[in-house]
Write a protein that binds this DNA or RNA. Sequence first.
DNA 1: TTAATAGTGTCTATGAGACATTATCGG
DNA 2: CCGATAATGTCTCATAGACACTATTAA
Lengths: 251, 251
Amino acid sequence: MAGRQGQGGGTPSKGQGRDPAGLDFPRPLTTVDVVIFTIRLDALQVLLVRRGHGDGEPFPDAFALPGGFVDVDKDADLDACARRKLAEKTGVVSPYLEQLGSWGSAHRDPRGWSATHAYFALIPASAAEAALAADAQWFPLAGLGVTPKLAFDHAEILQAAVQRLRNKVEYTSLPAYLMPEEFTLPELQRTYEIVLDRPLEKSAFRTRMLSADLIEPIEKMRKGPNRPAQLYRLKPAATPVYFARTFNAPE
Amino acid sequence: MAGRQGQGGGTPSKGQGRDPAGLDFPRPLTTVDVVIFTIRLDALQVLLVRRGHGDGEPFPDAFALPGGFVDVDKDADLDACARRKLAEKTGVVSPYLEQLGSWGSAHRDPRGWSATHAYFALIPASAAEAALAADAQWFPLAGLGVTPKLAFDHAEILQAAVQRLRNKVEYTSLPAYLMPEEFTLPELQRTYEIVLDRPLEKSAFRTRMLSADLIEPIEKMRKGPNRPAQLYRLKPAATPVYFARTFNAPE
DNA sequence: TTAATAGTGTCTATGAGACATTATCGG
DNA sequence: CCGATAATGTCTCATAGACACTATTAA
């Protein structure tokens, strides 16, 4: 119990080497998965990749969240690993990226004890269409999940991501990260409504957004077959805004 | 890139074995750390353990968060691992326990690429005194940290835990988990004030707590040299309550 | 002119902040 | 009685919700 408790004991050793001095015990597999959201076709969508079917590959041909093993040579840290996986599948390099949580157990991967560090990312629809990987595909959300059966415990992770997103959208400006460069207030409101799956009051919404130090009008209007709308963009230092109240009291 | 991407490839294999069919690459170390909070001596305190100083032990004799390697035989999942570590140090078996996040990088542990899954726990002062491990010790929080220098990146993890706790206390009933079985409303308010490090309005506080479905009065009063106070206890199904507003608008 | 959507204003309800007032104990 | 703390009440203010109303474009 000595060395192994408290991260103690043992001679330093890299990798999984069977060094004799204290680190010689089985290590779990370490992966990172990313739940990537966007708004497409007036719906909240999530990116999934189809798994291969070689050798002992678990969940062959099933859909899964983009992700995979941490590469101790390529990845300086977990965030970098998540960004790498996001970029590989979408080409997007600076998304809104947030840690979601971790899932680890003896049985979630048939190959052995494994733990995944899950992230969730928000990217604008435009970026979502550009450089998509061949094995990647967008799926609209149905409730808290998606129609295809997912590999591993990814359905559970996806559900947690959707709940976290919906919850935070009640009192933050997160949906702003789903918008293109330029957008109107009604378009931003529509994004909120899609994510929350319920209509919002127009005037309360506008008051909240305009009094937050979040967006600024640009010298341009969105033209259409009706009254033109003021275009806005995110202010430069666009860290998410937290509001002091939720949109309406949970029943 | 085939097998290793997307958690793919390879014959199932337990532990860190050098199996030839796809899982033969270095694995990060996997640990779990727990930030354990309580209220002691009218202050928010955190439990730290002193590290050993054997062999190649990193950060000898430094203080650190309770934690250590995941044991793929003992621990069914990450939560169980966190509970085990909490119980080993405090004897507490059913605390409020929440995942905080994970920290992983090539350099946080001199022994190699490592990732820790951090949790935070809230326990009542009473439980905090009972079965404390010999190497464990309570430290009052000073700002976002603690006076001794901590091992690894534990100062950063502790800071994140304090921020998360303070933040959530603004709109949740989390401090209820720091209270003994029976408590009065002014005592609960005092706990909020200690965690937030600022005074709260009595009447607003009472209205909020009493209208939440959180506590119930018992047939007993707290006597003292002044007007007795109604005693309350947590309602049985005591999942944390989320309020629709924060206590007062952040400036 | 009309249809459609953008944007503003008005009224109400809720709950927090500030603070005064009353209640109930020991001494 | 007094000091102390518990508990309640009153007033104001901010903001969400509901919804009416005005504004500006294309056709």
